[in-house]
Amino acid sequence: MSIVNIRQGSTRLVDTKKVHLRGALYVAEARTRAMMKWFWMILAIAVANPALYLISVGIGLGGLIDKNVGSAGIDGVKYLTFLAPALLAQAAIQSAMDETVYPTIEGFKWYKVFYSMNSTPLSGGQISLGVFLTALFRTVYTVILYFLVMWFFGALDSPRAWLAIPTAIFAGVSFGALMQAVAAKLENENIFFVVLGRFIMMPLFLFSGTFFPLTSMPFFLQWIGWISPLWHATELGRYLTYGHEISSSMVLIHFAVLITMLVAGLYLSARIFTKRLAK
């Protein structure tokens, strides 16, 4: 018989209290399943990206720099040691952004899956948080893989190098949360992608003290670093991994900026999701 049983008991089994508590996890579960369809792609990016950077910039450029500055090093250490926390944070930012921006636009505009999620007991805030948690998961995965590749290339000569893992993840999710809020607000994504790639991601990568200390930049360009999660995370990463000298008040400021970005991003994103779904 091809008739579906409509009184089998899920009316009793439907559990709004459970959804209220765990809704974001259900969304994350669904998002993770979708992400896993790209497993090999994500793995390839996560491994190839650091491998290429370490060979070209780390070994090529690094070798040249180390030879010229001699034992003084950059910031007192080998170039690769200096560079590692920044590269790690950059990878975290990229993957967190991929996993917040695209699914958010897809959910609101391309396939409108958020609307069908919202026709269940799930709330806009839970959907927003679920997307974010999936991005967090991917960021952790990417950063750990990146770290392993660095280790493989012998790019880690500080015993505390692993401390750059949490700072990188921190940078990634802070930026990801903000970008998720921006993406949720978008009506026209085409212009956004052009702006994001050329005028946000690229300058952030180049002007955040990634390849050289921010202070070597003329002062009027340093503001880019100040608003960049990449710079704050990199400074923290350098401080933790090899003892890069910063004052304790700066340590606090770096933390505060990243936390503020994260909290503001999560709050705004939840609000914008809720509003847009209720339109």
Binding site: S10, L13, Y26, E29, A34, Y111, K112
Partner: peptide, 26 residues
């Protein structure tokens, strides 16, 4: 809804499964 709004990347079974989970069903 008017527009199917299915998760295009997932399979038929996965779409049903995740949706059931959104209701807190075991």
């Amino acid at each position: 809804p008017q527009q199917d709004s299915l998760d295009m990347q997932l399979t038929v079974v996965e779409n049903l499964y995740i949706y059931g989970r959104y209701f807190g069903l075991p």
